[in-house]
Simulated assay, not measured.
Amino acid sequence: MSGADQYQIAVPAGTYDLTDMYATSDRAKNQLATGELPPLANPIPELDQYNLILVGSPVWSGQPAVPVK
């Protein structure tokens, strides 16, 4: 732990099928194609106070996870 502020990017429960990666992949690809990205579970905090922001993400189909976009 670095002692830095942290924010977890998350979507509401049920947004993606956690038991079927193919269904999740299909939904994510559709969201990217249509631009209809999922809502976040929590609002993004005010970022003006930071001069460095690091974002980590899993990779879905060769891209950052849709919620990160």
Score class of each variant (00 low, 15 high):
Met1Lys: 10
Met1Cys: 09
Met1Gly: 10
Ser2Gln: 10
Ser2Ala: 12
Gly3Lys: 15
Gly3Asn: 14
Ala4Arg: 15
Ala4Lys: 12
Ala4Thr: 09
Asp5Lys: 10
Asp5Thr: 14
Gln6Cys: 10
Tyr7Lys: 05
Tyr7Pro: 08
Tyr7Trp: 11
Gln8Lys: 12
Gln8Cys: 07
Ile9Asp: 12
Ala10Val: 13
Val11Trp: 02
Pro12Arg: 00
Pro12Tyr: 03
Pro12Lys: 05
Pro12Asp: 01
Ala13His: 08
Gly14Thr: 00
Gly14Ala: 03
Gly14Ile: 00
Thr15Gln: 01
Thr15Asn: 01
Thr15Tyr: 03
Thr15Met: 02
Thr15Cys: 00
Tyr16Leu: 03
Tyr16Pro: 00
Tyr16Arg: 06
Asp17His: 10
Asp17Pro: 10
Asp17Tyr: 12
Leu18Val: 09
Thr19Glu: 12
Thr19Pro: 00
Asp20Phe: 07
Met21Arg: 07
Tyr22Val: 11
Tyr22Arg: 13
Ala23Thr: 13
Ala23Gly: 08
Ala23Tyr: 03
Ala23Glu: 14
Thr24Ala: 10
Thr24Met: 14
Thr24Ser: 14
Thr24Val: 14
Ser25Asp: 08
Ser25Lys: 04
Ser25His: 04
Ser25Gln: 14
Ser25Leu: 15
Ser25Tyr: 05
Asp26Met: 11
Asp26Lys: 14
Ala28Leu: 09
Lys29Gly: 07
Lys29Met: 10
Lys29Val: 10
Asn30Ala: 10
Asn30Leu: 08
Gln31Cys: 06
Gln31His: 12
Gln31Ile: 03
Leu32Cys: 08
Leu32Thr: 00
Leu32Val: 11
Leu32Ser: 02
Ala33Gly: 11
Ala33Ile: 07
Ala33His: 13
Ala33Met: 10
Thr34Cys: 14
Thr34Gln: 15
Gly35Leu: 10
Gly35Ala: 09
Glu36Met: 12
Glu36Pro: 04
Glu36Val: 13
Glu36Thr: 15
Leu37Phe: 11
Leu37Tyr: 14
Pro38Leu: 00
Pro38Ile: 01
Pro39Arg: 06
Pro39Met: 02
Leu40Thr: 04
Leu40Arg: 12
Leu40Asn: 07
Leu40Glu: 04
Ala41Phe: 09
Ala41Asp: 12
Ala41Glu: 06
Asn42Ala: 13
Pro43Lys: 01
Ile44His: 11
Ile44Thr: 15
Pro45Glu: 03
Glu46Thr: 05
Glu46Cys: 03
Leu47Gln: 13
Asp48Ala: 11
Asp48Trp: 01
Asp48Thr: 09
Asp48Ser: 15
Gln49Ala: 09
Gln49Pro: 00
Gln49Thr: 08
Gln49Arg: 11
Gln49Lys: 12
Asn51Trp: 02
Asn51Cys: 03
Asn51Tyr: 05
Leu52Val: 10
Leu52Gly: 08
Leu52Lys: 12
Leu52Asp: 11
Leu52Arg: 08
Ile53Gly: 02
Ile53Met: 04
Ile53Pro: 05
Leu54Glu: 04
Val55Arg: 01
Val55His: 09
Ser57Pro: 04
Pro58Ala: 13
Trp60Cys: 00
Trp60Leu: 03
Ser61Leu: 14
Ser61Ala: 15
Gly62Gln: 14
Gln63Val: 07
Gln63Asn: 15
Gln63Ser: 11
Gln63Trp: 02
Pro64Leu: 09
Pro64His: 06
Pro64Phe: 09
Ala65Trp: 02
Ala65Phe: 05
Val66Phe: 02
Pro67Leu: 07
Pro67Trp: 04
Val68Met: 07
Val68Gln: 01
Val68Glu: 05
Val68Ala: 09
Val68Tyr: 06
Val68Asn: 06
Lys69Met: 05
Lys69His: 13
